[in-house]
Simulated scan of single mutants.
Amino acid sequence: MQLFSTFEHSSFIELAIATLEKKGIPQGSIFIVPLDNRLEERKVFDTLHRSDGTSLIDIGAALATAFSVIGASIGFRLAWGPIYWGLIGAAGGFILGLAIRLFTETVLKKKKRLLKGLHSEIIVIVDCEEAQGEMVENILFQHFALGVAKIK
Rank of each mutant, 00 (worst) to 15 (best):
L3F: 08
K111L: 07
W85M: 14
A72Y: 04
E134L: 14
L63C: 02
N138S: 14
R113Q: 08
L108M: 11
G117M: 02
R50M: 00
I100H: 01
R42P: 03
T47A: 04
I151L: 15
V69E: 01
G24Q: 06
D58I: 05
L140A: 10
G89V: 06
L78M: 13
K22N: 11
F94Q: 05
I25N: 03
K22Q: 15
A99G: 11
A61T: 10
A90N: 01
E137W: 04
A18K: 15
F76M: 09
G92Y: 07
V136N: 05
L114V: 07
L118F: 12
I125D: 09
L140G: 01
I13Y: 09
L102R: 07
K111Q: 13
S10E: 06
F12D: 12
V136T: 08
S55H: 07
A91E: 12
R101T: 15
S11K: 13
S29Y: 06
G89F: 07
L48P: 00
S55E: 03
K112E: 12
I59M: 11
T19P: 02
V124R: 01
G147K: 13
G133M: 15
A149M: 07
W80T: 12
A79E: 14
S10R: 02
F31R: 12
N37Y: 01
P34G: 00
E40G: 06
I57D: 06
D46G: 01
G92Q: 03
I95T: 14
F31H: 07
E40W: 08
G133L: 13
L3K: 02
D127H: 15
I32Q: 05
G75P: 11
K110F: 04
R50Y: 00
L115V: 09
H9C: 09
R77P: 00
I25Q: 08
I13M: 07
E40D: 13
L20W: 06
I17E: 12
T65G: 15
T6V: 00
S73R: 09
N138R: 15
S11C: 05
K22C: 02
N37A: 14
I88A: 15
L146F: 01
F12N: 12
I100P: 03
A90D: 10
Q132L: 15
F94K: 04
G28T: 12
A66P: 02
W85N: 14
I83S: 11
L35R: 01
L115W: 07
F7L: 01
H9L: 01
F76A: 01
T19G: 00
Q142W: 05
E137D: 12
Q142K: 14
A64Y: 08
I95W: 09
L78Y: 12
E130N: 14
Q2V: 06
V126Q: 07
